[in-house]
């Protein structure tokens, strides 16, 4: 664009410059910041677990681990699947990317479904002391992130059908898969805190 051309000046839309590299930087900064909310919740959970005089609500003697364990395995493997999808994209195999990416989304959806089943079978609620509160807060907030992740992957899938979508870079696929790994790592910590720690 030459600045002396008045017609260009007229339909100048400020901020039209687009840089994929900035997006990734911004996104990484966002993830670092977001992880601190989880850290705050983890710290709160640990403090309550260690100091609360009455931890488990009456009539509840711990959480069932089998179902969350299956969920964990699905979510952790989905991170690897997402990685392969990204690899396909970088090799230029668009359909490979779309199919494997979609499988990642399905695995995420399975996780949400598993979470839903678990929640609906629990005998305590949000208002059952700090145990109930922290349990639903942590799993719920994480679940929201999973749902957001699936949504973002859907958006990326949708964009992949736009002609010439990847001319200027991968248009966010790296960011979204980074987000997915993040959600995955958070879940692993959460699983150890909530489900594994109760045995000790």
């Amino acid at each position: 664009m030459t600045s002396s051309d008045p017609s260009v000046q007229l339909d100048h839309t400020p901020g039209h410059i687009k840089h994929d590299g900035h997006n990734l930087t911004g996104f990484v900064i966002f993830l670092c910041s977001e992880s601190i909310i989880f850290l705050a919740f983890f710290a709160g959970f640990s403090l309550f677990k260690l100091t609360s005089p009455e931890w488990l609500p009456a009539g509840v003697d711990g959480l069932e681990v089998r179902m969350p364990l299956i969920n964990t395995i699905v979510l952790v493997s989905s991170s690897f699947v997402a990685y392969f999808a990204e690899r396909y994209l970088h090799k230029g195999n668009l359909w490979g990317f779309r199919i494997v990416w979609f499988i990642t989304m399905l695995m995420g959806a399975y996780f949400v479904y598993g979470q839903y089943v678990e929640w609906s079978n629990l005998k305590f609620g949000l208002d059952s002391g700090v145990f109930g509160g922290t349990f639903y807060l942590l799993t719920g907030f994480h679940g929201l992130h999973v749902i957001t992740g699936i949504g973002l992957m859907g958006l990326m899938l949708f964009h992949s059908f736009r002609p010439g979508n990847y001319e200027k870079g991968d248009m966010g696929v790296t960011s979204v898969s980074l987000f997915w790994h993040f959600v995955d790592v958070i879940w692993i910590i959460l699983f150890f805190l909530i489900y594994v720690w109760q045995r000790y």
Binding site: L47, F48, T51, S52, E54, G129, T134, L137
Partner: peptide, 11 residues
């Protein structure tokens, strides 16, 4: 919830 309510185990 009772995160900050001592009566529910909170702080």
């Amino acid at each position: 919830t009772s995160f900050f309510k001592p009566e529910g185990g909170g702080d």
